[in-house]
Every structure is written in structure tokens, then in C-alpha cells.
């Protein structure tokens, strides 16, 4: 992780509270693993979606890296977003797939590329204030 990485993302609230976090290793997505059956999910749930055990979901930090499964460039932006933006589906090593933005332009990751997670401003809230979210860039 670059030592001069700007950490403004820490001050900008997430577009989805609880989606991501940051530790000494860098940004991650909040997930959970069921202690009963091993199922991994994005986010936190009280009931395991697979085995229905309650209270068995344990926090798992995931999504630090992944592989691009598919991607597109969106030219007609919905409210809160600025066009164009690049986004895709990223397959994580933990066995799940997430939708996330991708770095745009010349450095854009292509299908099959290994990517690493950043948390950056992605959109604006209704009042115009910035909200952050996950974006992946090529892992060198």
C-alpha cells in the first residue's frame, strides 16, 4: 500500500453504512463467515442464509483483492453519480462476487485482471455531500 495514499476516504461517510472498513493492512469489505457451516457472506446477518443458525455469523474482513469477472462503462448516470463511470463484478477469493466500481481510463482493469480494493468517493447523497464506496484497481 502506497505510503502517500490520501486518507480522505476516512472522513467521507460510506454510501452503505457497514459496507467497508480499514485497518493496518488497508481497506476491506465487511463480511461474515458462519461458524456452523462455513458459508461466507457480504455484510452481516443474524441468521446464516445457508444453515439458518442464529448467532453463528462471525465477522470476516474480505475483498481486499479479487479478479474481474465482467465490467462496463456507464454513460447515463443515475441520480448521485457522474457519467461516465466504470464498474464491474469482482470475484473474491472467499468465493463470493461483488459489484464495485473500477478505476477508469488507461489503468482500467480488464476481465481476468487481479485487482485490489480502495475506498474512494463514488457518489453524492441527496444533499450533494460525497459518499464513499468500493473501487478496485489493477494489482501490479
Amino acid at each position: 500500500m502506497s505510503t502517500n495514499q490520501v486518507k480522505t476516504s476516512g472522513a467521507i461517510p460510506s454510501l452503505w453504512p457497514g459496507l467497508s472498513g480499514e485497518d493496518a493492512e488497508g481497506p476491506y469489505l465487511e463480511g461474515a463467515m458462519c461458524a456452523s457451516c462455513g458459508t461466507v457472506i457480504l455484510g452481516l446477518r443474524s441468521i446464516c442464509p445457508q444453515c439458518w443458525a442464529q448467532g453463528s455469523m462471525q465477522q470476516l474482513k474480505l475483498g481486499r483483492t479479487g479478479t474481474v469477472y465482467t465490467r462496463t462503462v456507464i454513460h447515463q448516470a443515475p441520480e448521485g453519480f457522474e457519467a461516465p463511470y466504470t464498474a464491474g463484478m469482482v470475484d473474491l477469493g472467499e468465493g463470493i462476487r461483488v459489484f464495485a466500481h473500477l478505476e477508469a481510463g488507461a489503468a482500467r482493469p480488464e476481465i481476468g485482471d487481479t485487482v485490489e480494493l480502495e475506498i474512494v468517493p463514488l457518489r453524492k447523497a441527496k444533499d450533494g455531500s460525497p459518499l464513499s464506496g468500493p473501487r478496485y484497481r489493477k494489482l501490479n
Binding site: 462496463t72 453519480f81 459489484f99 466500481h101
Partner: peptide, 23 residues
């Protein structure tokens, strides 16, 4: 849902499926 909140609008969903088919 989370994906829509992140800007995964319907045209983008179909576009991504198309991109994978092209790939």
C-alpha cells in the same frame, strides 16, 4: 439494494452480462 445504491442500474446489469458473453 446495495448494488443499485452503488449505481448498478438495469442497463449496466445487462451490459455486464453482454460483456462476459463477448469475453
Amino acid at each position: 439494494d446495495l448494488e443499485l445504491t452503488m449505481g448498478n442500474i438495469a442497463p449496466a446489469q445487462y451490459a455486464m452480462a453482454g460483456q462476459r458473453h463477448m469475453y
